[in-house]
Design a protein around this nucleic acid. Structure first.
Length: 279
DNA sequence: TGACAGGAAAATA
DNA sequence: TATTTTCCTGTC
C-alpha cells in the first residue's frame, strides 16, 4: 500500500526490523502496512524499498518528528563505522541486522513499557500495554477500526485498583500503583536536558526500576544512544562471542566501555541477531 | 502438569 | 558491598 506522504530513505532502513525487534510494543501489523499509536496521533506506515510512506490520523506529525521517532535521522554508516573501529567483532551482528533503527518514544510511555517488561515476553508486554490503553486511553477511529492511544498520567490516575489488577503484574502491582501516583510526563520532561548520569540516577530511584530497565528507558525514551541494557540474552552473547562475563550491572559498564557513544546500537544488533538464531 | 523463562527487591553473608 | 534467594504469571 502506498500512503499519502513519503520520505525518501538515504541509508539502509527496515521498517519491519525497527518495529518488530522488541523496542516498541504497541504496533499493529496489517497486510501491507503498520498502525502505530504515537503521542496524540495514530500513524499508518509502509515501506517500499527506499521509500517510507505514511499517513497521520489526528494531530499533525511533521516529517522531521516522524524521522526522529523512527531513527531515520541517525547516520547509520557513521554509527556502524564507529562501532567497527571500537571492536571488529561486532561485524557479523551489524551485517545481519542492516536497517534496524533505534526508536525514540515518549519517556513516560517508555518507562511504563519497560516496567511492564520485567520478567516478561514481548507478547505479554504488548498485552499489558494494550489492556492499559484500552481501559484508560483515548479511543481513536482509523478507517473502520478503533485504536487506543497510550494513556496520559492524568488518565492513569483515574484507574481503580481493580482496573490495575487486570494487568496481572503480580507482586509488582504495588510498584506500578506507586509509579502512577508519584510520577507524570512532566517528571520525565524536566530531566531531558540533564546528563546521562543524572537521568540514570533518577530512573534508578524509581521503585521497580533496576539497571536493565533504566537503560532501556534511557535508550528508547531519551535517545541516549550510549545506553547498554543487559538482559539474559545479552549476557549470554557477551560471554559466548566476546568472552566477557559478570553481573548484568557490571556488563552494562563493560559494554559501554567497549562500544562508546553508540553502545545502544551495538546492543540492539547483538540482541536482534541472537534472538533470531535462538528461536 | 510440572518445568522453565524472565529482572528487581529483599535477604544474607 | 557482593552474592543468593524470592517473588508471580504465562507458556508449552
Amino acid at each position: 500500500m502506498r500512503l499519502q506522504n513519503s520520505i525518501e530513505l538515504k541509508e539502509p532502513f527496515s521498517l519491519a526490523q525497527t518495529l518488530e525487534c522488541g523496542q516498541i510494543f504497541r504496533v499493529f501489523k496489517r497486510n501491507d502496512y503498520y498502525i502505530v499509536p504515537y503521542k496524540g496521533s495514530v500513524l499508518k506506515l509502509a515501506q517500499h524499498r527506499n521509500m517510507l510512506s505514511y499517513e497521520v490520523f489526528g494531530k499533525e506529525v511533521s516529517k522531521t518528528e516522524l524521522g526522529n521517532f523512527l531513527g531515520i535521522t541517525h547516520s547509520i554508516s557513521e554509527i556502524n563505522q564507529y562501532l567497527l573501529n571500537r571492536d571488529k567483532r561486532i561485524l557479523p551482528f551489524l551485517d545481519y541486522v542492516k536497517g534496524l533503527r533505534i526508536i525514540k518514544m515518549e519517556p513516560y510511555e517508555a518507562a511504563i513499557s519497560f516496567i511492564f517488561s520485567i520478567q516478561s515476553s514481548i507478547k505479554l508486554i504488548s498485552k499489558r500495554l494494550n489492556i492499559l490503553s484500552e481501559i484508560a486511553g483515548r479511543p481513536f477511529k482509523v478507517d473502520d477500526e478503533i485504536i487506543f492511544l497510550f494513556p496520559t498520567s492524568k488518565e492513569l490516575g483515574k484507574l481503580s485498583n481493580r482496573d490495575i489488577s487486570l494487568l496481572r503484574l503480580g507482586f509488582r502491582e504495588k510498584f506500578f500503583r506507586e509509579f502512577i501516583e508519584k510520577y507524570s510526563e512532566k517528571d520525565f520532561e524536566k530531566i531531558t536536558s540533564k546528563s546521562f548520569e543524572e537521568k540514570e540516577k533518577f530512573l534508578l530511584s524509581i521503585r521497580g526500576v533496576g539497571k536493565k530497565v533504566a537503560h532501556c528507558i534511557l535508550l528508547f525514551g531519551f535517545g541516549e544512544l550510549s545506553a547498554f541494557p543487559v538482559d539474559v540474552w545479552i549476557k549470554r552473547a557477551l560471554e559466548c562471542y566476546f568472552g566477557i562475563s559478570g553481573s548484568p550491572k557490571k556488563l552494562t559498564e563493560e559494554g559501554r566501555a567497549i562500544f562508546g557513544k553508540f553502545s545502544g546500537y551495538a546492543q540492539e544488533y547483538i540482541y536482534a541477531y541472537i534472538r533470531v538464531f535462538n528461536s
